[in-house]
Amino acid sequence: MPELPDVEGFREVLASCAQGERIKRVQVNDTGVLHGVSARRLKRDVEGRRFTEPERHGKWLLARTDGPTVLLHFGMTGELVCCRETDPPDPHDRVVFTVGHHHLRYRDQRKLRGIWLAEDADADVARVLDRQGPDAMAVGRAEFAELLSGRRSRIKSALTDQSVLAGLGNLLADEILWRARLHPGRRANDLTDDECRRLHTEMRRTLRSAVPTGCVPPRKSWLTGHRDDTDPVCPRCGGALHRERMGGRSTVWCPGCQPDGS
């Protein structure tokens, strides 16, 4: 599932492929990924515009133009690909923007989210993103602590709740909690000030390391690099990793490094 680093990578794809370019054509191959906008209206309002500098908020990509803003969410299997016009199409290319001599292709197998159009760069974008919390890359320590102090849910659930904090998914949450040595089942509002400070620090460090790769990297020194092993062990202490479903999500942690303090 694309998480914050993946979407930041898609932002860079858009910037390098299309920023400043005129949108010559919008081809909608599957209207099932359009939300609140028809294919005809998307073409009418976007064709002839120029892409300006794109932005990201959490898992959302804001493809700004000199008119409306195209908002893209990638669900579990989505991606944004820059191709030459002559490159063969992929069966999962749902919407294709022709810019210069390139195609910017919104590609998604499962179609769980999709594309929105915001006519007003401020009000309409805010409406689409209304239920999103602050971006995980930008949230400060004091705001982070305040967000968690009001949550009685497990800390893993709080971190992955996009209305609390935007951008973190399953892999990042497990990685950050492992680095912070916090059990994922702890209640968010039970964390001490020191634990909350440590969690924020490790979140920032993890994101800064992951963003340049455009993914949550499966490095051998990371929990992520071992969670799918047949007999996964902790890269820090060598103990066996534990897996359990929490809040409907497969959650992995090290009982030795992350003791249950509840």
Rank of each mutant, 00 (worst) to 15 (best):
A126N: 13
V13S: 07
P184F: 09
D231G: 03
H226S: 10
P5F: 01
R131N: 05
H226Q: 09
S38E: 04
G20N: 02
P259Y: 10
G114W: 03
V99G: 03
P217H: 06
G58E: 04
E119P: 01
A145C: 08
T69P: 01
R127L: 11
P217L: 07
L147D: 00
S38V: 12
A39R: 12
P217D: 01
P232Q: 03
K220D: 08
G247D: 02
L168E: 02
T160R: 08
A126M: 09
E244R: 15
V164I: 15
H200R: 06
W178D: 05
E79H: 13
Q162Y: 04
F144A: 08
P235Y: 11
R249A: 01
V211A: 05
G238P: 02
V81R: 14
H242L: 15
L117C: 11
R25Q: 12
S250R: 12
R245T: 09
E79G: 15
P68F: 02
T224G: 00
H35F: 12
R40Y: 00
R110A: 06
D93E: 13
P218D: 06
R105M: 06
H183L: 09
L241V: 06
T206P: 00
K24T: 02
E47Y: 08
P134D: 07
E175N: 09
T65Y: 08
A210P: 01
A18W: 04
R187F: 06
L182S: 07
T192H: 10
P212C: 00
P184S: 06
G100K: 04
D45V: 15
A180P: 03
T230V: 13
G20L: 09
M76I: 14
C257E: 07
L177T: 11
L34Y: 08
R186H: 13
Q258F: 10
T86A: 14
D6W: 03
V28C: 07
L177S: 11
P68S: 03
D124S: 14
A145K: 13
D120S: 14
T201P: 00
S163H: 13
R243L: 11
E85P: 01
D174L: 10
E79Y: 06
S157M: 09
A240D: 03
D193G: 14
H103V: 08
V211Q: 01
G32P: 04
P218L: 12
R40F: 00
G150M: 07
G9Q: 03
G75C: 01
S262I: 12
W178T: 07
D193E: 13
N29D: 06
Q109F: 12
A158T: 14
D122N: 11
D190Y: 05
D108P: 11
P54A: 08
A173G: 05
D108M: 15
A138V: 14
G36K: 06
A123T: 14
R236E: 07
G248Y: 06
D66I: 14
T213K: 10
R56Q: 11
F51G: 01
G247H: 11
A210M: 02
K111V: 11
H35D: 00
L34E: 03
L171M: 13
L199V: 09
R131E: 03
V37M: 03
P91Y: 07
R110P: 02
R22T: 13
M1W: 03
F74Q: 06
E53C: 09
E21R: 15
R219N: 03
D174E: 04
D161V: 13
L168K: 06
S38F: 10
V13Y: 04
M137T: 14
E175Q: 15
G133A: 06
I115V: 15
H92W: 13
R205L: 14
D124Y: 08
C257W: 05
R113M: 15
D108C: 12
